[in-house]
Design a protein around this nucleic acid. Sequence first.
DNA 1: TCAAAAGTGTTTCAATTACACCCATGT
DNA 2: ACATGGGTGTAATTGAAACACTTTTGA
Lengths: 224, 224
Amino acid sequence: MRGNLFAVAVDLVVLTVRDGVLCVLLRERAAPPFAGERALPGGFVRGREDLLDAAGRELLEIGLAIDGHHLEQLASYAAPDRDPRGRVLTVGHLALVPDLPEPPGECIWVPVAEAGTLAFDHTQVLADGVERARAKLEYTTLATAFCPAEFTISQLRRVYEAVWGTCPDPRNFSRKVTSTPGFLVPTGTKVSSGRGRPGQLYRRGPATALHPPMLRDQPSDPPR
Amino acid sequence: MRGNLFAVAVDLVVLTVRDGVLCVLLRERAAPPFAGERALPGGFVRGREDLLDAAGRELLEIGLAIDGHHLEQLASYAAPDRDPRGRVLTVGHLALVPDLPEPPGECIWVPVAEAGTLAFDHTQVLADGVERARAKLEYTTLATAFCPAEFTISQLRRVYEAVWGTCPDPRNFSRKVTSTPGFLVPTGTKVSSGRGRPGQLYRRGPATALHPPMLRDQPSDPPR
DNA sequence: TCAAAAGTGTTTCAATTACACCCATGT
DNA sequence: ACATGGGTGTAATTGAAACACTTTTGA
């Protein structure tokens, strides 16, 4: 078998919305390389694991339950000098989780806008993950992955505002999501958010696609 | 460094449109494993190559020039038993080329609908590649990657028809693509396609995104 | 002259936008 | 009572779908 051998890692772009701000889960590296710098959580693929299994295990080790969370493969990165220890290919994964009371494991939540430069090529992996999340909010129902099991339309709208930085008119947004079949399932109960009229509670519906899509004001120009 | 070692391969989903039919480039495997079966062209990553470099080299070895062709990473596949020789991770790539007079190299053009079951997990890789191409025609100008340097709107429309199986009304399609700034650049010359009124010739413009997108009648429901 | 393909004009319809207005609740 | 957020009604606007019709070529 020609070709050289690689260690294969999975790295996780775990995104959430905290207080209206899109945040990513980062870990400060204890050991070299890049000791002391911030990096995406991740680790090597073990034994007979498949990629998504390895990513799920890393989520578990961080302290996040697997099921109920969105987890998908992003892209692979294998520049020859990306890891000084040798040839390491990493498969970036995107995980979306609802707001959690405490940062899990040894990790910290950092606003995406303040993430700065990360270890390895994780700056690029993070950028790709955020762009993927932004794009998918347009044409899928993925925004619910940022919400707890039951949520109001306001909470869902705040997800769009945090991820996109903007969002359509609240009243039209409400109509759009409730009129898409299978997007939201009303629970029948209402909840008060402190002030104002209480909102209807919803769960995720079975729909995944959004037709027609939700429109951003100035969508970014993705590379072909 | 924990974790086991992998051989890393790149496999290519090379798509083109021949006589109005979406075709994929396949190679019959000479050596085990899967000897005699059809597979996607590909090979192991060598030396200090990055992934896209390795995919470009494979394209060259097949006999296709690199530049001018669209080439992008698709996804990685690493199921533990996908290759009987051991742990091999493959990074699928998508390449789009215009119709070529002869099938390059040792390869054959096979209509995607007749590809059947391929070696390894290449059936899945092909399906993912086709789905990516279908999706990208909606919101990018990628269809021009299937066309030669100069082409008519009819040729471009036939790309949509081949890839999607359907396409909007020819007259509205014409308006849509010509009214999107930067999609098409008229060359000023006309060309006759045997019968009927000659059409205007165009080149690719600098635009990559399509806003608003081209709409399919029944878009497939992509996994979240 | 006719068939075939390119391209324009125009009507119809669906969806988004914008915004006036009412509803329900906490203070 | 009133501020605050939830939600409905509705007109204006935009863009796509549908299709009649003209233009330009080859046979």
